[in-house]
Design a protein around this nucleic acid. Structure first.
Lengths: 217, 217
DNA sequence: CACTGTAAGTGTACGGTGTAAGCCTTGTCA
DNA sequence: TGACAAGGCTTACACCGTACACTTACAGTG
């Protein structure tokens, strides 16, 4: 009997720890959306009661911070050896890719900001590349703000992308009803609906890189 | 007695209606932040029980949509008579101004998107100006996405701005402790903390306008 | 071997949330 | 006067994060 219980325990749940909790939280958010994530549901996903999580984690915010950190850690850091334009481009695209894969990250970043290890490391690396490229501190700051805004903005639009997919069917009918009031929106609605955010982001990124380059002189 | 009750009612609360509820919600979010807004607190702010709100409003989401609409309605629409560069610039700045005044809007937009009257009107006007300026539909779409992302991105950063003000004191000490690991972040931290987002936004806006202009050829 | 301390999972409970359902008061109109 | 609707209020429910007290299993020590 005791043995059975032991087996069950061993088989169905490895010992709980912070990493396992955060991994499960990331998976849950990927599957069901971050707003569906609750301590009870996360516990259930791990085969454990909600309160057990608190033995390994300070509180829910701690988990959310860990989730952000988890995603930032998977963004490959830019290579300082390369031309800054290449670094910025590849890093931007890599970041966008992760934000697309985990749309809830932008959501979380917005509510809480983040100064975890991974995000500071990331930021530090990018700033270093800009400074090494010859940008003054002020210019590097401008560049960072602009790149960050552009990236967050696209991730933002993508994650709130109600123009996409399912919603679009209902919207089309609604828009055709409002066609006389919003002719330009209706005209461009197909483009908005089919919008490939990766391509779109890259397009803007080139404009920004060119613009920064020009300011660099 | 009945009279007294009447006077009280008349003085402390005008008859409830959707607009009054949404105005109060906006004021509450401005004062206490949108995450503090609950039906009970909003009711209390209006001198009414939470459930009374439901006589004028479908649910909380309805209120949140109304709040977004309320803010978009206060952004002056661009003037189609003017040069598109001027229109885009002034409209962008006007939008940023509102998003700065009501930081929670970006928050809400992110969670729910928005296709209210005001935001569609706004979007329609901007798209109209871009098309009239000679942008193809694809180009207008690119331009809109880019401008929207840039604006939302800056608003986003501003509203999540933990580099600002109070947090900065604690952070400084923390950063100096981590100075060897994040030298570039620490070096630029003063700039990040003092960052004037309006100026910063305008800087990026010019780059984008120039870039779009070049693509327009 | 028993004893004790500790780590970790559990159960219960509290104050908060949005909101469904029903009640009660009020003003309007036939 | 009586029916009726509008718009408040009360109660109740399911969910949330989490404080606190409990149990259980193991490790270390005599």
């Amino acid at each position: 009997m005791t043995y059975d219980v032991w087996m069950t325990v061993i088989e169905t749940r490895a010992p709980l720890n912070r990493d396992r909790i955060i991994d499960a939280a990331v998976a849950y958010a990927d599957d069901h959306g971050v707003e569906e994530l609750s301590m009870r549901k996360l516990g259930a996903a791990l085969g454990v009661e909600a309160m057990s999580l608190y033995n390994h984690v300070a509180n829910k915010d701690d988990i959310l911070d860990g989730m952000i950190d988890h995603v930032f850690r998977t963004i490959p850091l830019p290579d300082p050896e390369q031309d800054w334009r290449v670094s910025v481009r590849t890093t931007g695209l890599a970041a966008m890719e992760q934000f697309s894969a985990h749309p809830w990250v932008v959501h979380l970043l917005m509510q809480r900001g983040n100064f975890g290890n991974a995000s500071l490391t990331f930021m530090n690396q990018v700033l270093g590349i800009l400074r090494a490229a010859g940008f003054s501190d002020e210019e590097a700051h401008h560049a960072w703000q602009m790149l960050a805004s552009h990236t967050m903005g696209y991730a933002f639009q993508q994650s709130s992308g109600s123009w996409h997919e399912k919603e679009w069917d209902g919207l089309e009918e609604q828009l055709s009803r409002l066609g006389d009031r919003f002719p330009h929106v209706v005209a461009l609605a197909p483009l908005l609906a089919q919008c490939e955010f990766g391509t779109e982001y890259a397009f803007g990124l080139e404009i920004i890189i060119s613009g920064l380059e020009a300011r660099l002189g």
